[in-house]
């Protein structure tokens, strides 16, 4: 499972960075999305990988914490997803405004000459 997850994070991040460096605004936003997926998976994996264990412990008595998943990264990743979703939506609006004002989808607002 570790190798699958790390490969997924790596491929998402690499594709995201490559797209981020492209000159078209749509490529940039897709790149940012992929990169944020990679980061979210990474945060999730920082709570250690476990299969089929609940994150919430019962109240009272002795609880063995190794039988439970770490709930904190799950909470963090939810927050991060919401925030990146909102900022991506905002970025999309700016991209559309830029396309409307300049008539091109180049990130610099003008096509390179030649």
């Amino acid at each position: 499972m570790e190798i699958v997850l790390s490969a997924a994070i790596g491929i998402l991040a690499a594709s995201g960075i490559w797209l981020l460096l492209r000159p078209r605004t749509f490529q940039v936003i897709v790149g940012l999305c992929l990169l944020s997926y990679a980061v979210n998976l990474f945060i999730f994996s920082m709570g250690r990988l476990t299969v089929g264990v609940p994150p919430i412990m019962p109240q009272g008595g002795f609880v063995n914490p190794t039988l439970y998943a770490d709930p904190l990264p799950q909470a963090l990743v939810l927050t991060a997803i919401v925030i990146s979703f909102a900022t991506t939506a905002l970025f999309l609006v700016v991209i559309i405004a830029s396309r409307g004002l300049t008539g091109t989808d180049h990130v610099d607002g003008k096509e390179r000459e030649g």
């Binding site: 940039v28 900022t87 991506t88 970025f91 700016v94 990130v107 607002g109």
Partner: peptide, 12 residues
Amino acid sequence: VRAGLHYIAVNL
């Protein structure tokens, strides 16, 4: 808008 585009991309 152009400056904002760069600013947002960098900060994201």
